[in-house]
Simulated assay, not measured.
Amino acid sequence: WAGQWIIDGFTALEALVVRHGEGWCFGGAPTLADCYLMPQLYSARRFHVDLAAFPRLLEIEARAEAHPAFIAAVPENQPDAD
């Protein structure tokens, strides 16, 4: 059930990114949409969603994984992480 809603949302977002993205969801710099995308991709994998149909979203994820602000925000990189 959760996987289907993720697919529906990613299908809509992928189309928007194709039209409006310039490396990020909506332009050439990260926005709140990119911040929200990261945990959704994590959830998609948790529910075994096939992400092959969303290449632009995966490109954004790769870009975020190399961006200092996103690296600093990873839960495992927080001072209180065990």
Rank of each mutant, 00 (worst) to 15 (best):
G23K: 01
A64H: 06
D82T: 11
P79C: 09
F26E: 10
I6P: 04
D82Q: 13
D34V: 08
F26K: 09
D82K: 09
A2P: 01
H20N: 15
L32G: 01
A72E: 08
F70E: 01
Q40M: 13
E61I: 05
P39H: 03
A72W: 06
E76F: 11
L51F: 04
G21S: 02
H20E: 14
D8I: 15
E76C: 08
F54M: 08
G3N: 01
L58W: 05
P68D: 05
I71S: 03
E14Q: 14
W1Y: 11
D34F: 06
F26Y: 14
C25D: 01
A81V: 08
T31M: 09
T11L: 01
V74P: 05
W1T: 15
I60R: 03
R45K: 15
D50I: 09
A29S: 14
A29C: 14
E14V: 12
P39W: 02
M38G: 11
R63I: 12
A73Y: 03
V17G: 09
Q78T: 08
H48P: 00
E59S: 06
V49C: 05
A52Q: 01
W24T: 06
P55A: 07
L16R: 13
H20C: 12
L57W: 03
D82V: 15
R46L: 14
L57D: 07
G27F: 11
E65N: 08
E76N: 01
P30R: 01
E76P: 06
F47R: 02
Y42Q: 01
F26P: 09
E59Y: 00
L16S: 10
R46E: 13
F10C: 12
E61N: 04
A69M: 12
E59P: 02
G28Q: 12
E22P: 07
G28H: 15
G21E: 03
R63M: 09
